[in-house]
Amino acid sequence: MTGETWLILGASSAVARAFARAAAERGDAVLLAGRDGDDMARTAADLRTRFGTPAGVLPFDAADTDSHAAFVAAARQATPGTLNVFLAFALMPDQTAMETDVALALACIRTTYLGAVSVLAHLAPVLEAQGRGRVVVLGSVAGDRGRLPNHIYGSAKAGLHAYAQGLRARLHRKGVTVTTVKPGFLDTAMTWGLPVPLAAPPDACARACLDAAARGREVLYFPWFWLGIMTIIRAIPERIFKRLSI
C-alpha cells in the first residue's frame, strides 16, 4: 500500500479502467466514480482480486453539477491517505446529430466542460488543503482546434484545457500538480465503428497518464506523434482551414 488514492471520475470508460488497473498494480487505492454502479462494482472487485488493493465505488453524475459538493465531501471522507484525481469522463455525441439537435450539443458541453469544471472546482480546495497530490485531466486533441467534423465536443475540450491550465497555476502554488493529457484516437467504445486511423490501445494511454502524473508533466500528447500532427493542424491559416474538412 502506498497511501495514495486515485479518485477516478468516469470510471466505466476503457481508459479509466486501464488507469485504475495500472494504479492498483502499483499499490495505490482507487475510488471509482460514475453512473454505472454495476459496472464499477465489477471493476472494483477485479482490482481487489488481482492486486489486493482497496477499491471502492461512489455514484457520480458529471452532468448533475448540484450534486458535486456532496460528492466531493463523500470522496474526501472515503480517502484515508492522499487524494489524487483522474478525470476521464466526457460525452461525445455525433457532430451532425448535435447540429440538428441543439439540446444534444448542450448535453455534450454540460458533461464534458461544465461537469468537469464543477467537480474540479469543488475538489480544488480539498487538494489545496492537502498540500500535495496529482490531478490528471483527460483532454483531447479535438480541443486543439475547432475542426468541422467534431467542433462542439472540441470546443468543450478546448474550454477544459484552458481551465486546467489555470487550475495548474493555482494548485502549483500549493504543491499539487495538474497534468493535461491529450490523446489522439483511442481504440475504445467511443471510436469503435468510426473511421478513425491510428487508434491507440487504451491501456498504453493509461500507463502514459500515470507516468506523466508521477513526473508532474504539464501537458502530454498520446501517442507522442499527435504533438506533431496538432502543431501542423494549428499552423494552418484560418483562411485555408475553413475550407478543409479534417
Binding site: 476503457a14 479502467r17 454505472d36 465489477r42
Partner: peptide, 9 residues
Amino acid sequence: AARPERVAE
C-alpha cells in the same frame, strides 16, 4: 461486430 466494454452494452 460490436465490442462492448460493459455488461449493459
